[in-house]
């Protein structure tokens, strides 16, 4: 399938391994990525907080660019925060034709226009809803047997439920568990899976921010996790990049690796940890690398 691919900013900035891993994994799933390299930052909810109309216009621009991609079935993002911030703007744009006209007027300077009803899905949703768990299972080359993975969603992709169309028959807030299982891994049940990583207040209340990250990492460790997996690069920043500082705040050694979702998928599809950029994490994913070395060795 062909998708208009929005990588977001952080996946090309402070978590380059995420963008890289997605590029490696997509062909293995027959996803053709047409990168929206002209699109702008979603504003992470912060611009909407400052000026709602500005955020709506900026995201309408991205949506309009996505709608221009010929033959694309949908727009795909790889960031929970993009998903949440963009869904919020889209909710307003789709709700009122008068408002949409007003925003489109601003975009008309560039010859762009957003038409109601874009489908914008995070890679996680694409995996389950477009590719399907059975197909995913069939493509697994190296099942994640004995790898204990804790899911970490990121707030913006699980709340609010109505806006994100999370329903009984579409349990998007359970997808990470389903994907981990489909890849052959063991799901770790711990308190923090759907909690906040703390990143949004890292400049506003650093102690509280890092306490959140540290607490969830600690809870996952106590539940015997080998690693966490997240579809959100901003969560990754607080959970991985800031982990050495979070250790200081919660007063315990952590050292829990945090994988990006495409990295975990890539691993099961047979890619090597280095190919997936795992050498670039602040917390070296030693448990994961050891696991994959052991699996490769036993297969040889």
């Amino acid at each position: 399938m062909k998708v208009a691919y929005w990588p977001g900013c952080v996946s090309r900035g402070f978590t380059p391994e995420l963008h890289g891993a997605t590029a490696k994994v997509a062909p293995l799933l027959d996803i053709e990525l047409v990168e929206l390299d002209r699109a702008n930052c979603c504003g992470c909810g912060v611009i909407a907080e400052h000026n709602q109309e500005l955020a709506d216009t900026l995201n309408a621009r991205t949506f309009a660019l996505a709608q221009q991609v010929a033959g694309a079935e949908l727009m795909m993002n790889i960031c929970s925060t993009c998903q949440g911030a963009q869904s919020e703007c889209q909710e307003r744009l789709d709700a009122s034709s008068e408002y949409r006209e007003h925003i489109n007027e601003t975009l008309s300077g560039e010859g762009l226009r957003y038409e109601r009803g874009l489908t914008n899905k995070n890679f996680l949703w694409v995996l389950v809803e477009e590719i399907g768990l059975d197909e995913l299972r069939a493509r697994v080359k190296r099942p994640l047997s004995n790898l204990k993975v804790g899911p970490f969603y990121g707030c913006y992709i699980v709340r609010p439920r109505e806006r994100l169309q999370i329903e009984e028959e579409q349990p998007r807030d359970r997808y990470l568990e389903l994907v981990i299982e489909a890849l052959g891994g063991t799901v770790i049940d711990y308190a923090g899976a759907r909690k906040c990583c703390g990143f949004p207040i890292v400049t506003m209340n650093k102690q509280a921010s890092l306490r959140q990250a540290g607490t969830h990492l600690g809870d996952a460790l106590d539940a015997d996790a080998d690693c966490l997996v997240t579809p959100c690069p901003l969560c990754h920043l607080n959970l991985d990049l800031q982990q050495p500082l979070a250790e200081g705040v919660v007063g315990r050694r952590l050292g829990l690796p945090v994988l990006h979702l495409p990295q975990l998928v890539g691993l099961a599809l047979g890619l090597a940890p280095e190919e997936l950029g795992m050498g670039r994490h602040v917390v070296r994913p030693k448990s994961v690398i050891d696991w994959s070395t052991a699996v490769v060795a036993s297969a040889a």
């Binding site: 909810g45 707030c155 906040c196 703390g198 207040i201 509280a208 959140q212």
Partner: peptide, 8 residues
Amino acid sequence: FDCTHCFK
């Protein structure tokens, strides 16, 4: 400004 924007 101490709200972490989690939608809970």
